[in-house]
Simulated assay, not measured.
Amino acid sequence: MNTLARKATMEHTPAVAEPCAGLRSQVRQFAAEWRDAGRYTPRSDSWLRSFDLEFSKQLAARGLIAMTYPKEFGGAGRTHVERLAVTEELLRAGAPVAAHWIGDRQIGPAILRHGTRELQEEIVPRIASGDAVFCLGMSEPEAGSDLASVRTSAQTADGGWLVNGHKIWTTQAHRSTHAYLLARTASGERKHDGLTEFILDMDSEGVTVTPIVDLAGEHHFNEVRFENVFVPARRVLGEPGRGWRQVIEQLSFERGGAERALSSYPVLVELIAETARQRDDQELHAVLGGLIARLAVLRRLCFEVARAMDEGQAPVQQAAALKYLGNAFEHDVIEALRRTDLCQDPAFDSVFGQALLASPAFGLRGGAAEVLLSLIARQEART
């Protein structure tokens, strides 16, 4: 293995790797066993597109889901830095982690921060065991990155709320047991007022899921409609009408993870191999060297976000910066491989083809560039 390839395997970043060597080895061995047995094929964007509930449950049995959750709720009581090591290795392996990713990454932490004891006891252990599969009921046809413009409404009813509305681009909704839902429960002077977060059962009467098939013929996106869907009062997350601050906090969990830099990691592996074959192509070597240097910086940002979470913070601006820079990196990795002979006629199911077809969403999910830059700019203005 040449020097660049060795660095890109991500085994030599002391701030992250050395304290977590045992965890990394455990994840690599488990993923390799499943891969070598033919139980999955590594792919880009695996955290959204590669779904295997049994894989997730096996991770849970090994204490590799809900790692940062308290032990009383089925978690492992470990640090976010340790969780980062595990998620990096799963993404490097292109493993089928979509079944647990959203629930583990952000819904569990949100419930632990803002949910009642009853809600925590009901939902969090099911996330920790892999039994609860979550989708995100955020984006709507006219409210994507501008989540404060959501029109889905919830009105009070006897014992709870009645939800009516329409969500779109809802990943894995057709396989989910639960949805996190952002809905408008009141109007205020600002559009950010009057928003409430709910935890909803996807098998509730009045929930309709319609598939959205992408350019490659894959189905992971969906439209979800709610028609007089009853949500019990105990399923409100936080205080009714004051959900916007919680949404922003939750997005720091969504935006600040390793998936914002490693969705196209299998492409980087192919680029490394191709560069090794083209020993005389100095331009390609320079491009790869630049990408690996950027990856080292992005990993450091991931580490800083994880450390801030361990200190009890919600690093909104840092997570926004990571997502913005990570999106650009992922696109540039794909573009670098595109320029090689390896991709003259890419198949849809090739590593390159999968990543290329997924890439338009990199800059949209979790917030468009304009939204991220505004968050970063506000932080700069305060400092």
Rank of each mutant, 00 (worst) to 15 (best):
A273H: 14
S264Q: 03
T170Y: 02
R299Q: 13
I102R: 01
Q172Y: 10
G75F: 14
R28G: 09
T152V: 04
V16E: 00
P232Y: 01
G290A: 02
G108W: 06
R307H: 03
Q278C: 10
A99N: 03
L268M: 01
G115K: 03
A154T: 08
T116P: 00
S145D: 04
A233Q: 05
E54C: 05
E274W: 09
E311T: 07
G159V: 06
H331I: 07
D280Q: 07
S176V: 03
S145I: 08
R382V: 06
M1Q: 04
A15G: 00
E197Q: 11
L84S: 04
R242N: 07
A21M: 12
C302Q: 15
T156H: 02
H80R: 09
Q26H: 08
V213H: 01
A98D: 01
A328P: 08
I127F: 00
S153T: 04
P70V: 00
V97K: 06
Q282P: 04
Q106I: 14
T383K: 12
L64M: 15
E205M: 05
R307G: 00
D203P: 08
S50A: 13
A293K: 06
G159C: 08
V86Y: 14
D341T: 14
L90N: 00
A355C: 05
D310A: 10
S359Y: 08
F73A: 04
E218L: 11
D349T: 11
E223C: 10
G290S: 01
V124F: 03
H331C: 14
G366S: 09
D214C: 00
K191N: 12
T208V: 14
P240D: 08
L200F: 12
R300N: 02
A368T: 12
L284S: 03
T79H: 13
A216H: 07
A8S: 11
F73N: 01
R300Y: 06
A368H: 15
T340I: 11
E88M: 12
D131T: 09
G160A: 10
T156S: 08
F51I: 07
M309T: 00
H166P: 00
F30W: 06
R242I: 04
R255G: 01
P240S: 02
P211H: 07
T13H: 02
S25M: 12
R28H: 02
E335Y: 13
L262H: 15
F55M: 06
G144E: 13
E370D: 15
L301S: 08
L268T: 03
F303V: 00
R43G: 12
F329C: 04
V86G: 10
E259Q: 14
E330I: 04
V163G: 11
M309D: 01
T275N: 04
A148S: 14
L372K: 00
L325S: 10
R382L: 13
E304A: 02
T9H: 07
Y40E: 05
K167Y: 07
D146E: 15
A15P: 00
T79I: 05
A32V: 04
A258L: 06
C343A: 13
K323G: 08
L271H: 15
E254T: 12
V247M: 10
G353I: 09
V316L: 10
